[in-house]
Write a protein that binds this DNA or RNA. Structure first.
Lengths: 190, 190
DNA sequence: GCATAACTGGAGGAATTCCATCCACTTGTC
DNA sequence: GACAAGTGGATGGAATTCCTCCAGTTATGC
């Protein structure tokens, strides 16, 4: 997000809060969240929102960027800190499910599929994620841990897996249960 | 759906079209679809919709019922026609992913979690589905095809799995790819 | 066929939601 | 301490959506 002409410190802080609030509400309520609700959640006036993001799409784009960046961060941390590619992949997929990126995708894509592709910074993070997935996949296959017959395209599908968790259940339990099963499906047989 | 006092043939047809249209649009657009759009999709006037479903929730309930019933039908057909419990379960899970029941759940539950529980006919179909899952799970485990350490609760989570399919890809390919992986995760090792 | 009760559709007014501007006031920064 | 930068929310207007009402249509029994 190229911060054009240096923002004043408080303005920058408000901007960031807006983006985070937008991402949260996008995940909770879909693309049609009232802008006023985003402003409220960010603890900021509606006027401030409009100054920083003169049109809705600008905010949506910033929020998408934030979401993708979190994903990339998760992946990079996993790659850096885990002992091997298989474990990195496992951790990454778990992180994806928790971030609910799939929900973001389905909420946003239909509305902006070209606006998003047009935004260069989005394209860039997306590339980072793609590369990461590539490295993890081929790495884990080389280690003999990942089945040879899954492609990076398959992994990409799994990245945006969504599960519906009934209110009675703990989200993170459910997520890890499903992801574990998924990983068992991915693991090479010996 | 107890059809109280016999509906005239055309009225009944219109009612059914409304429910189907409502389910479709619910899946496509979420709980906030304009009622007028549902009426249009059903090829019916808005007045007709209101006569049959005086309040929004009545229609939502009918649509949920329709969705669950389709699910139960899929499951029952699978149970009846497949040679063993494991294959029935596989077919059932595939069907679930294609019906996108997860999307229905996440769209509707938050809005009506008690209204739905209150409707007896919904509770009933839900029970049918639950029983089906039970039978399939324990059956497939008895056959030695399904891992012993998965519970029916796990399977229930998988029932409402959602995947985001990028527009470039064929939905059914993606679905079957993911479901196959899932099933490999569920299959007992020998 | 025909009578009639059931059913239909959509025009249109009320109500709600959402947008987006504007400006008096506050706050960072040099 | 001065001044540019930033803030917030009241407000009018646009756009949706709801939902009633009734003149007209259609199925059904005889």
């Amino acid at each position: 997000m190229a911060a054009q002409p240096e923002l004043r410190a408080d303005a920058r802080r408000n901007r960031d809060q807006l983006v985070v609030a937008a991402l949260d509400l996008l995940l909770e309520q879909g693309v049609d969240v009232p802008l006023e609700e985003i402003a409220r959640r960010a603890g900021v006036g509606i006027g401030t929102l409009y100054r920083r993001f003169p049109e809705r799409d600008a905010l949506l784009r910033a929020a998408s960027y934030e979401g993708l960046r979190r994903l990339a961060d998760t992946g990079e941390a996993a790659w850096r800190e885990e002992p091997d590619a298989w474990h990195a992949l496992s951790r990454f997929l778990r992180g994806c499910a928790e971030l609910r990126l799939g929900a973001l995708m389905s909420a946003i894509e239909p509305r902006l599929h070209d606006a998003i592709r047009a935004a260069p910074e989005l394209h860039e993070v997306r590339q980072v994620v793609t590369d990461l997935v590539d490295r993890m996949t081929t790495g884990a296959q080389a280690e003999g841990a990942l089945r040879k017959d899954v492609s990076t395209a398959d992994i990409s599908l799994l990245i945006s897996l969504q599960i519906y968790v009934p209110p009675s259940q703990s989200t993170s339990d459910a997520v890890s249960r499903v992801v574990d099963l998924m990983l068992d499906g991915l693991r090479a047989r010996d």
